[in-house]
Computed example of a mutant assay.
Amino acid sequence: METVAYYNGKISEIDDMMIPMTDRGFTFGDGVYDATMARHQKIFALDEHLDRFWRSMAAVMITPNFTREELTNILNDLLTNVTGEAYMIYWQVTRGTGRRSHSFPLDATPNLAVMITPMSLDRGKQERPYRLRTELDIRSGLTHVKTINLLPNVLAAQRAMQESVDETVFYRMAANGDTRVTEGSKTNVHMIKAGKLITAPTDKLILPGIARQHLLQAARSLGMPVEERAFTVAELKTADEVFITSSTMMAGRVVSIDGESVGQRDEAHFIPLRTQLVDEWYAETE
């Protein structure tokens, strides 16, 4: 099969899968998800993605009707239906199916869905320049939960595409007027200043990315100081290096923000950091 879809035990090509209109994911976006990549039938950082998935379910009061081991087996079994080198694996759980009502029964039976699609795996993806734009973050206070409510992210990503840049960086306005950087529409955002890796803290304003977690481990293994703290758009624009991370891209070097040239002044720290991340990404899926 070229693609694989799974819904509560049914398996088909994605375009052939039918899902009830009364699934609460369709009517309310009432669910959570996670995603990673697989190469050579091996799933990258699955344990960490499942940890986050279970945290997300707990945060929105969804009690799964499957175990962690059962979900692991489902994902690995579904991968046997495809033969390409690299695939994106997406899975989500919604609260269940029923007549439309904002409140929900606590004993609702969750619906589990999985999609597996081919993806391009190219080391050059990490080495090309990335260009960003900034935008006020109007999302909810649940951004640390990987919910399927992604309309603000979708609109921000669309505006980035229309402006011929790669990503939108969100910021929040602080009481003192500062513009605190939170994250990208689909990435985490980081900077290097004076040889130190600086990244936003994992509070309720950002999603704790799995690639972000591996980034911190890589930095520490290289003896690079790490600081998890809030920082402003102005700080980001004056950093020695700026880059974005995700589980399907790892580390992309940023060369401009809002049309202004940024970073590109500390290859001695950035290049080894990116190389270690990408090498780990490939090595884990050999």
Rank of each mutant, 00 (worst) to 15 (best):
A35T: 14
A35S: 15
A35Q: 11
T36Q: 06
T36L: 03
T36P: 09
M37A: 05
M37D: 00
R39A: 04
R39N: 03
R39G: 04
Q41F: 11
Q41E: 12
Q41C: 05
K42M: 03
I43Y: 02
F44M: 07
A45V: 04
A45D: 10
L46T: 02
D47M: 04
D47V: 02
D47C: 00
E48H: 13
E48L: 13
E48W: 10
E48P: 00
H49G: 03
H49C: 05
H49E: 08
H49M: 05
L50S: 09
D51T: 13
D51H: 11
R52N: 05
F53C: 07
F53Q: 08
W54T: 02
R55L: 14
M57V: 12
M57G: 05
M57Q: 12
M57R: 09
M57L: 15
A58Q: 11
V60I: 15
V60M: 13
V60D: 11
V60W: 13
V60S: 11
I62G: 11
I62K: 09
I62P: 14
I62W: 09
T63H: 12
T63Y: 06
T63K: 14
P64R: 11
P64F: 10
P64V: 07
P64Y: 08
F66M: 12
F66G: 04
F66K: 07
T67E: 03
T67C: 03
R68T: 07
R68S: 07
R68A: 01
E69I: 07
E69D: 15
E69Y: 04
E70I: 01
L71W: 06
L71I: 09
L71K: 06
T72D: 10
T72Y: 08
N73L: 10
N73Q: 15
N73C: 04
L75M: 09
L75A: 03
N76R: 15
N76T: 13
D77C: 01
D77A: 14
D77R: 10
D77L: 06
L78R: 04
L78W: 04
L78S: 07
L78F: 05
L78K: 06
L79H: 09
T80I: 02
T80P: 08
T80K: 15
N81H: 15
V82I: 15
V82Q: 09
